[in-house]
Design a protein around this nucleic acid. Structure first.
Length: 685
DNA sequence: GATCCTCGAGTTCG
DNA sequence: CTCGAGGATC
C-alpha cells in the first residue's frame, strides 16, 4: 500500500470510527459489533504508530473515553455489592430456609421482609454530610464506574438528604446506600412511542434502556430519559445509628427522605413470607415497573450478616423469581416458509429456551424488512418474548453480546420449496413465490380449505394433507371430494402414526364421513375456503349474503363487488381475477359436480336485535361461553364482533386473564362488561 | 392526504 | 398476538 492510499485510508477510518462512536455513545444505537469496532480502531492505531505526524486532534485516539472500557472512572465500593441466589418456586425457597436454619438456629424464629426485585440497574450512592457526592454502577461488585454526573439528573435521587419525616433522625457524616435505577413501564412505552414517531430506532425493554441511559457520556441525554430509583440497602455508614433490621432500615431510609418501595412487607415466619411472595406471581402487572421476582430477606441484619456469603450471594436473602416473560437465546438459523398466498415468511430457529413455562424453539420474524430493520443476524443472542404470554416473537438482537462471528442474513432469491425466482410488488413489504403450481401453496391452500373457519373438516390434518398432496391424490382443493378410502388408508399408513390410537380403517371412515358432512357447510364458509386474496371470514360472509350463490358471485363485476362495505378496488379486482383463472374455474366445476354448491341460507341473513349497530370485542376466558359461542350470541342479537378495540367499540366483554385489549379499552374509555352483563343487556332492551 | 379502523394472514405450543 | 394493507372517514 503506498503512502497516498494509506493516508486516505487513515482519513476514512477516522470518520468511520467517529461515526460509530456517535452511534454508540450518543444515540445508543450501534450499527457494528464491538469486535468490528475494535478492528477498525486497531487498524487506526497501527497507522498512527507508523505515521505519528499524521495524528490530528479529531482522531478518535486523542479523545478521552474513546473506547467503552475507560469511558468512566473506576470507583471502589466501600463494601461488596452482592447479588442474590435464585429460587424458582416455593420449594426452592423453603429449601433455602432449611439450609440457613441448620447454620443458625436463630433463623427458625426469624422474621422476614419481602421486597420486589426490580429489573433495573443497581447503583451505589455516596452522601457526605447529607450531600450527594458520588454515584456508581455496581460493576463487578467490588469496583464500579463513576456515573455521578448522570445520576445527578435522576430526579428521584436526593441531591441533599432531605430528612423528610422525623426530627429525631440525624444524617450520618458519611452514608453509602444501594438502590435500583429503572424506567417505569409506562414511561418506557411513552419514550418508544416518541422515538417511533420521530422515525428513530426504539428500545428493546426498560432494563436495557435504563442501563444504556446511565452509560451516556452526555448527562443531558441521561436527563432526558425517565429514570427513577428506589433504595433498599445501606452499604456503609459513618457517624450514624443504623437500624438492625431490614424492616426498620426501610423505614429509616424513608424517614431520611429516600424513595423506598411501598410494596415491601414484614412477616413473622417463612410460610407467610412465601405465601405473600407467591401472590405476586399473578399480581406482577400491578407494579409500575418490570420486576423479575421478589426478594425474601431475613429481617435481622446481624443474623443475615453472620450467615455470610457463598460466592457473591449472601446466605441471608434469596430472590424468588417470577417465570421469565422475556428471555435471551441464540438465533441459530433463519428458515423460510411459504404461505398460502405465496408469501415468504422468515422463521427464527432458536436454541430451545423456556419462557413462561414452555420451551420455545421457533418464532416468526414476520418479513424480511423486519430482520433488516432490527439488524438481526444469525448467531445473535436475541431477546424473545411471548406476545400476550402466548406467541413468541423476537424483540431484537442484544448488540452488546455480539462476538463478531454473527452472519448477516440475506433473503433467498428463489422459493425454498419450488425454486422459482421470488418476486416483489411495488409498495408492498412481502416477497412472493408467484408459481401457482408451487407444492407449498397447494398444501397451504388445502389446509386453509379444511380449516375451522372454512369447511371445517376435522380429521384432515396437516400431516395427512401433506401425504395426499405428495402421492398426487390431491391436486387441488376440490379433489378432497374425490378421495377414495384407499387414498386415505395409504396416506394414514405412510405418515408417522406413533401417536394415533385409532386403527387406519376407522380413521379413514371418520374422515370420509367428515368430508361428506362438509358438503352441507354454508355458502360463506365455502367462499372463505376458496382462499381469494383479501377475502376472509368477514368479507366472505358479506359476499355470501349479498350474492346468495357462487353462480351469482362468479359473474359479478368489480363495480358490483365494490357496493359491499369493506370491498374496495383492490379486493374487487382480486375476486374478479380469481374467478377468471382457468384452474379456479376447474375447481368450481369439480365442486359443483361433487354437490358442494350451497345457497345462502336463512341463518346466514343478518339478524336484527338488541345489539344491532353495536360492536363488541371479547377478551379473556368467559365463564360460560366459548369464544365461538359468545360470537354467535352477539351476532344472533344483531351485534358485530371484532378483534381490535377502538373508539368505535361499544363494549368490551371481559373474561378471566384478559390480554392487552383490556388495557386498550381502559385507555380509550370503552365500556367494559362481564358475560353476565352481556346477557342482561339483551333482556333490558 | 392523513388518520383511524378493520380485516386477513401467519404464528407457537400443549 | 403482531404486522401489513385495504378501506372508510374526515
Amino acid at each position: 500500500m503506498n503512502a497516498n492510499s494509506q493516508r486516505s485510508r487513515y482519513e476514512e477510518l477516522k470518520s468511520q470510527i467517529n461515526f460509530h462512536n456517535h452511534r454508540y455513545h450518543v444515540l445508543d444505537a450501534p450499527v457494528v459489533s464491538d469486535a468490528e469496532y475494535d478492528k477498525l480502531l486497531n487498524e487506526l492505531k497501527r497507522i498512527e504508530a507508523a505515521h505519528p505526524d499524521w495524528i490530528t486532534s479529531d482522531s478518535p485516539t486523542q479523545r478521552a473515553g474513546a473506547t467503552p472500557a475507560d469511558r468512566f472512572e473506576k470507583v471502589r465500593h466501600p463494601g461488596p455489592i452482592l447479588s442474590l441466589a435464585n429460587a424458582f418456586g416455593a420449594e426452592d425457597a423453603r429449601a433455602w430456609f432449611e439450609r440457613v436454619r441448620k447454620l443458625d438456629e436463630r433463623v427458625a424464629s426469624a422474621k422476614f421482609v419481602v421486597e420486589p426485585k426490580i429489573d433495573g440497574l443497581s447503583v451505589v450512592l455516596h452522601y457526605r454530610n447529607g450531600l450527594f457526592v458520588q454515584g456508581a454502577t455496581r460493576g463487578d461488585g467490588e469496583v464500579g464506574e463513576d456515573i455521578t454526573a448522570n445520576l445527578r439528573t435522576v430526579k428521584s435521587i436526593p441531591l441533599k438528604i432531605p430528612l423528610s419525616q422525623s426530627k429525631d433522625l440525624s444524617v450520618p457524616a458519611y452514608l453509602v446506600v444501594r438502590g435500583e435505577a429503572f424506567i417505569p413501564i409506562r414511561e418506557f412505552e411513552r419514550l418508544n412511542q416518541q422515538l417511533e414517531e420521530a422515525g428513530q430506532k426504539t428500545y428493546l425493554n426498560p432494563r436495557n434502556t435504563a442501563a444504556g441511559s446511565l452509560r451516556q457520556l452526555d448527562p443531558a441525554l441521561t436527563a432526558s430519559r425517565p429514570l427513577t430509583l428506589l433504595v433498599y440497602q445501606i452499604i456503609y455508614s459513618e457517624g450514624g445509628k443504623i437500624p438492625t433490621s431490614q424492616w426498620e432500615l426501610l423505614q429509616y431510609l424513608k424517614g431520611l427522605g429516600f424513595p423506598v418501595t411501598d410494596v415491601a412487607r414484614q412477616f413473622k415466619d417463612i410460610d407467610s413470607a412465601i405465601a405473600y411472595t407467591e401472590t405476586w406471581n399473578t399480581r406482577r402487572d400491578e407494579l409500575s415497573y418490570e420486576a423479575d421476582g421478589m426478594v425474601i430477606k431475613i429481617d435481622d441484619l446481624n443474623v443475615a450478616a453472620e450467615l455470610g456469603v457463598v460466592g457473591k450471594d449472601p446466605r441471608g436473602a434469596i430472590a424468588f423469581k417470577f417465570p421469565a416473560r422475556e428471555v435471551t437465546t441464540k438465533l441459530m438459523d433463519i428458515r423460510v416458509s411459504v404461505g398460502r398466498t405465496g408469501v415468504l415468511i422468515p422463521n427464527a430457529v432458536l436454541e430451545p429456551v423456556e419462557i413462561g413455562g414452555v420451551v420455545v424453539e421457533r418464532a416468526t420474524l414476520h418479513n424480511f424488512d423486519y430482520i433488516a430493520e432490527k439488524d438481526i443476524r444469525i448467531g445473535d443472542r436475541v431477546l424473545v418474548k411471548r406476545a400476550g404470554e402466548v406467541i413468541p416473537y423476537i424483540i431484537g438482537p442484544v448488540i452488546d453480546a455480539r462476538k463478531g462471528n454473527e452472519k448477516k442474513y440475506s433473503m433467498p432469491k428463489k422459493c425454498p420449496v419450488c425454486g422459482q425466482p421470488v418476486e416483489h410488488f411495488e409498495g408492498e413489504v412481502a416477497w412472493y413465490c408467484v408459481n401457482s403450481a408451487c407444492p407449498a401453496q397447494l398444501q397451504r391452500n388445502v389446509e386453509h380449505f379444511v380449516s375451522r373457519g372454512a369447511m371445517d373438516i376435522v380429521g384432515l390434518g396437516i400431516k395427512i394433507v401433506e401425504k395426499l398432496v405428495e402421492t398426487g391424490a390431491i391436486k387441488d382443493a376440490a379433489d378432497i371430494y374425490r378421495l377414495e378410502r384407499e387414498d386415505i388408508l395409504q396416506a394414514v399408513t405412510k405418515k408417522d402414526r406413533k401417536t394415533d390410537k385409532e386403527p387406519p380403517g376407522k380413521i379413514a371412515d371418520n374422515l370420509l364421513a367428515a368430508i361428506e358432512n362438509s358438503k352441507q357447510q354454508t355458502l360463506s364458509r365455502l367462499i372463505t375456503a376458496l382462499g381469494i386474496r383479501g377475502v376472509g371470514e368477514v368479507v366472505a360472509g358479506d359476499l355470501g349474503r349479498h350474492f346468495g350463490s357462487l353462480d351469482s358471485l362468479s359473474k359479478a363485476g368489480a363495480d358490483d363487488l365494490m357496493q359491499i362495505e369493506g370491498v374496495g378496488p383492490n379486493i374487487a379486482e382480486a375476486i374478479v381475477d380469481w374467478f377468471e383463472r382457468p384452474a379456479n374455474k376447474n375447481v368450481l366445476a369439480k365442486l359443483k359436480k361433487a354437490g358442494v354448491w350451497p345457497k345462502a341460507s336463512e341463518d346466514e341473513k343478518k339478524k336484527e336485535g338488541a345489539f344491532t349497530g353495536m360492536t363488541f370485542v371479547v377478551t379473556g376466558t368467559l365463564p360460560n361461553f366459548s369464544r365461538e359461542q359468545a360470537r354467535e350470541f352477539i351476532e344472533d342479537h344483531g351485534g358485530k364482533v371484532t378483534d381490535s378495540v377502538s373508539k368505535k367499540t361499544s363494549y368490551l366483554v371481559l373474561g378471566e386473564e384478559p390480554g392487552s385489549k383490556f388495557d386498550k379499552a381502559k385507555s380509550l374509555g370503552v365500556k367494559i362488561i362481564s358475560e353476565d352483563e352481556l346477557r342482561k343487556l339483551v333482556r333490558s332492551q
